[in-house]
Design a protein around this nucleic acid. Structure first.
Lengths: 355, 355
DNA sequence: CGTTTTCTTTGAAACGTTTTATACTGTGCC
DNA sequence: GGCACAGTATAAAACGTTTCAAAGAAAACG
């Protein structure tokens, strides 16, 4: 028994036609109890595994689910993958993983090539300048696609996001409540919708509190530690120095912490820091990082569930799901001048925002 | 053009037989320049993508590569995945990712099921009690499999590992050189070959330096932060307290740092810590963690390269590749008593023996 | 007991490739 | 002009399923 056992062999052993075997396996037709048993026995005894290739070819669809993302190595993404895989596994779908490196050409090429495996669906964390929307608009008979974490330019399909604006708003709000007024922000690359949203939240909170913002207190960086470090270094040398920095993700917040340490500034006493993401390490930095929590795992499961629904034929207008964020208060924010604390306009008690 | 374009359409447009199209695509036979051109043009114009399913079915093998691992969420693994994917991509292979959760039954079931996609090869970071060796011994006509990071029970195929024993030895050695004598170790689960190896290295260094080791200074934990924290708490409450703790991975080392902080012990002044892995965060803990570096990315690329070689027909006895490690010295180890420092070779310090 | 009717089962045609054995084209040679 | 001989091109048979129309068998009916 070198070659894998096939349906024909099952049929022979069970003394039944191939079609019947198929029907037993898929429940596509009523089969007499007796034959059914014989087939099942044969399957068990020979250790039969249906060929996904043949089946996929015939039905023009497989049980594969493709997930594309910029880079697994980005510490926020593994949790997303895990969430997806958990749900996919339950739906007996298997995951193909692709790293696009934020290269929209690579993204498109993966899209075309893997489509020829006839996957059941696609889960995409779009590359920065993703052209996926335009590309798919042109294509017919495409399986369901759900975009995750970012909404690509022109995308009108399903999307699962995180409440970026609200999260940033809440974080900034927290800073205000702690008495800060000279606040700087280190944003992500501003051609990324995410980065823009977070900046918006920051601005809205300040505007609402009637706190002016100095233009050079807004520094654009690249969502990585190094650029965060550089931006922070610039910021911390300014006069007057900001009393607080809102870094739009934790990696950059880490950069801020490092820069402060290097410049001999004590956090939070001399400079307060807030991050965004709540990556694992945020709990263990010194000082522990106050940050906006978003759940990668939940992002993954939610997106995967939506995709499964679509695969199973859910017909509804495109959905936009926005997951809530929450400010995790730890030790990187100091309270400034108690007197000021009272000066905040109207208070909104809930830390959890978005929907 | 709703349905995907097929080879037959290319053939028609190029006024050529289907077989010829195939030959042009695969270079499996000489085709007159003129026809060749016509075919290529048709392919381009119609945007043809060969069906991987049909092709796979016919050739009994696809360009898929399956990678199984306990959990992408473990911070050491994403780098491995990335390494694998980079090499696979170059070899135009695509990656299917599975999380086994260290459940050998899940592992086997993935093995059977995904085999029916006729992958070109397998890359496996085995589950703790992996039965993969036994399972594959029974199977015929299986594509190449390379085990990564751990050698499963009974496995005699290719394997790519990291120099665990040597790394641990070097780390311990470093501790000895810094004058430490009362040294504790927090090991991983001792049914894991990795954990055993690291403990061995630790013991060898001590034995060589003729430094005795107190049995309860050896604590077994689960390679995660929480268990590391607990083990450290036990250790740090002992009398006499160890002056240094070698945690067999960084997650546990982090636990040690946390435990120390909680018990009001300053690291490294009152207790030195060494980790293993050199995860990203090791650089940013307070104090920065001295640890044994191993490169997940390199592990991935090396394993993938070996696998590709096998896929391309490399016929050689099973290979065992062991990647080097390196001690990254940072700030979590203090130097003890200068006088002692010279005493390293074979002096046995009474004070260190404890009671 | 023949005829319907209702269930089950089956044969055979797809699905889109690769690959082998065979057919076809010119050439060069006698 | 006939013949062997490359050199190319093609037809057709796989690969292992699903699925549909049609055949068979069993049950119900008159």
């Amino acid at each position: 028994m070198s070659a894998p056992v096939t349906m024909r062999e099952i049929a022979e052993r069970a003394e039944v036609s191939i079609g019947t075997v198929s029907h037993v396996i898929n429940g596509t037709a009523k089969v007499r109890e007796k034959l059914q048993q014989r087939v099942l026995d044969a399957i068990r005894k020979l250790g039969y595994q249906p060929s996904q290739l043949a089946r996929g070819l015939r039905r023009n669809r497989t049980s594969i689910l493709v997930m594309m993302m910029p880079d697994v190595t980005n510490p926020f993404f593994p949790a997303v993958v895990r969430g997806v895989e958990d749900i996919a596994y339950k739906g007996s779908l298997r995951l193909v993983l692709c790293n696009t490196d934020n290269d929209s050409r690579k993204e498109i090429s993966y899209l075309n090539e893997l489509q020829s495996y006839r996957p059941a669906g696609w889960l995409v964390i779009p590359a920065v300048d993703s052209e996926i929307a335009a590309h798919l608009k042109a294509a017919h008979s495409w399986p369901p696609v759900v975009c995750v974490d970012r909404r690509p330019e022109g995308w009108s399909g399903d999307v699962v996001l995180v409440a970026n604006e609200a999260g940033a708003y809440a974080a900034t709000r927290h800073l205000l409540q702690m008495g800060h007024r000279r606040m700087a922000v280190i944003t992500g690359p501003l051609h990324l919708a995410n980065a823009v949203e977070r900046l918006k939240g920051f601005r809205r909170a300040l505007a609402q509190a009637k706190v002016p913002i100095q233009p050079d207190y807004i520094q654009e960086a690249r969502f990585d530690r190094e650029s965060g470090y550089q931006a922070a270094t610039r910021l911390l040398r300014m006069i007057p120095r900001p009393t607080a920095i809102f870094a739009c993700n934790d990696l950059m917040a880490l950069g801020v912490l490092l820069a402060a340490r290097e410049l001999g500034l004590e956090c939070p006493k001399e400079v307060s820091v807030v991050g965004f993401d709540n990556l694992d390490f945020a709990e263990f930095t010194a000082p522990a990082l106050t940050t906006v929590h978003q759940s990668g795992y939940q992002l993954g499961t939610t997106a995967a569930r939506l995709l499964l629904d679509r695969i199973n034929g859910l017909e509804q207008p495109p959905k936009k799901v926005v997951l809530p964020t929450e400010v995790k208060i730890r030790n990187s924010v100091a309270c400034i001048a108690a007197a000021r604390r009272l000066a905040i306009p109207r208070q909104r008690s809930q830390a959890a925002v978005g929907r």
